[in-house]
């Protein structure tokens, strides 16, 4: 008698728990679909600062390396001029990697090689 009561009670509890889990899952689904509003400005702020800095840093480091090489080899201003522009290219490449989510990694990537899936990237190549 007591056992029956208990199992009945448990069954009731289980079904209501299952319902509640379903409800919670559905409401969670609705919540996930929305972008996390609180995170965006901070991430954007950090990204904006990095993009600007990356452009400048490429030129500065390229120019500085060239200047050092020139001083060492006595070829002023050959290396400085060349590396200045290559540094600018490196800066732009870093920005491109940053905004495409590659996070300033050196080298090219698997997804870049089989970029055929993405028509935009194919056009860029």
């Amino acid at each position: 008698m007591i056992l029956g009561d208990n199992s009945n009670h448990r069954q009731d509890g289980n079904s209501s728990l299952a319902d509640r889990i379903k409800q919670a899952e559905q409401s969670a689904k609705g919540r996930v679909d929305k972008p996390p509003a609180g995170h965006m400005p901070v991430a954007g702020l950090a990204l904006a600062g990095r993009v600007a800095l990356e452009l400048v840093a490429g030129v500065v480091v390229g120019g500085f390396l060239g200047w050092m090489l020139d001083r060492w080899l006595g070829t002023t201003p050959g290396f400085m001029l060349g590396l200045f522009f290559l540094g600018a290219a490196a800066g732009m490449m870093n920005v491109w990697r940053l905004v495409t989510g590659r996070n300033m990694k050196a080298g090219y990537f698997e997804e870049h090689r089989d970029a055929d899936k993405d028509p935009d990237e194919k056009g860029n190549r």
């Binding site: 990095r50 990356e54 490196a90 800066g91 870093n94």
Partner: peptide
């Protein structure tokens, strides 16, 4: 060369 520069940019940036 570009990769090497971009590697040396890291500590600076």
């Amino acid at each position: 060369v570009i990769e090497v520069i971009s590697y040396f940019v890291r500590p600076v940036s």
